[in-house]
């Protein structure tokens, strides 16, 4: 049964999608296997391609305006707080959408994108494409506008600045396919 035992691989060995130096919290998503590349190329990526549409660009401004109006309507919310909340809501939403959720919600390529978040799926990972420039410009612009309208209150400024950096840094080309690992998770994976 020698062939048998050699064919018994480990789930982790097969599934290990990240390469990590010991004790480093930074890791990179492994390059796709040939099977995954074939599956990725089988069909256009419906999950990432819609961001190129005009409507998908305009909706960012619509959503921001909507958020601003919503917070203005809440009683007791000052202009400063309203702008800060708008900025933070937009940032949290776009972080979840572009950088937190991985894979594709629809089933058409056998989970070939399961390890990549949406930002990495856009334009097949190409950098400095028009859509990516737009998507990076929006949070920076929103930050500058919201700090202006918060009248440079230091607390609000710090909040807005951190929020902005949280979505700008993951969009940088140097963050491509990079993952940060929370230390608890690290220790548990090291055990196995």
């Amino acid at each position: 049964m020698s062939t048998y035992s050699s064919a018994v691989g480990s789930v982790v060995a097969n599934k290990e999608e990240r390469r990590r130096r010991s004790s480093s919290i930074i890791s990179h998503v492994q390059p796709e296997t040939i099977e995954e590349q074939i599956d990725q190329a089988a069909l256009p990526n419906l999950n990432a391609n819609w961001v190129h549409n005009k409507g998908a660009w305009i909706i960012h401004f619509v959503l921001i305006a909507g958020l601003k109006i919503f917070y203005d309507l809440l009683p007791g919310v000052s202009q400063e707080l309203s702008w800060t909340l708008t900025n933070i809501s937009y940032v949290v939403g776009s972080y979840i959408m572009f950088h937190y959720v991985t894979g594709i919600p629809f089933e058409f390529n056998g989970g070939a994108y399961d390890n990549l978040n949406m930002w990495e799926q856009i334009d097949d990972g190409d950098q400095y494409t028009p859509t990516k420039k737009f998507l990076l410009g929006v949070p920076i612009g929103l930050f500058l506008v919201s700090t202006h309208y918060t009248h440079y209150d230091l607390g609000m400024f710090v909040l807005n600045c951190i929020a902005c950096l949280c979505v700008v840094i993951p969009k940088l080309p140097s963050s491509h396919r990079m993952r940060l690992t929370v230390p608890e998770v690290l220790s548990s994976t090291r055990e196995s």
Partner: peptide, 14 residues
């Protein structure tokens, strides 16, 4: 930085 990012030309990672 934003200006620099906008002016950078596209490149492919594959």
């Amino acid at each position: 930085f934003a200006v620099r990012y906008f002016l950078a030309s596209k490149y492919s990672v594959t």
